[in-house]
Amino acid sequence: MTLCFLVGLAWALVFSPADYQQGDTVRIMYVHVPAAWMALFVYLNLALAGASLLIWRHPLAGVAAEACAPIGACFTFLALATGSLWGKPMWGTWWVWDARLTSVLILFFLYLGYMALTNAFEDQERGRRAGAVLALVGVINLPIIKFSVDWWNTLHQPASISRIGTPAIHSSMLWPLLIMALAFTFFFIVVLIQRMRGELVAARLRALGRLSVEGR
């Protein structure tokens, strides 16, 4: 993870060329785009974990879903904030209510709503199940975000990486972008495992506490 970040950062900040139209602001892309990808990817994980919690009732799925939410919220916030910092010099505005930006803002609120709902129940298991339902309903937002740039006329540019055929971006910019995306993915996995382990230890603590209260 650290190696990926170091290589990615060096490439993004020093070795990759400035854009002929956007100048050096194009370097914001190397944090903005991976953050936005991760915002969607983490939500997909959250929804899948929620689905397996509802279908197979596996307790670990609830732990995973709950661990995903704050990470995803952070990535979504970063996508919005860095997008804003990119939008100001390039579009001349911090924010517009267009389809892409608004749908990502809704994604951010979905994360916050999931966390609030999951924590609102006395019974942790019920909270996680209610959160999972919300997460699954919110999945409808993912294709809306993905295709918002094609369906509506927006200020945001359309996809340039996942186009059929060759990406519309030169390899001198594509490579650092992909390495940064890899670094972000590793970061997600590391923090996810960290948070899940923390939750499992907490569950054991609760069980021990209950045991000692009941006199073993």
Partner: peptide
């Protein structure tokens, strides 16, 4: 290129 606040701001954040 004159965009220090925006570029460094996003990386710092």
């Amino acid at each position: 290129g004159g965009y220090a606040g925006y570029v460094w701001g996003s990386y710092l954040l």
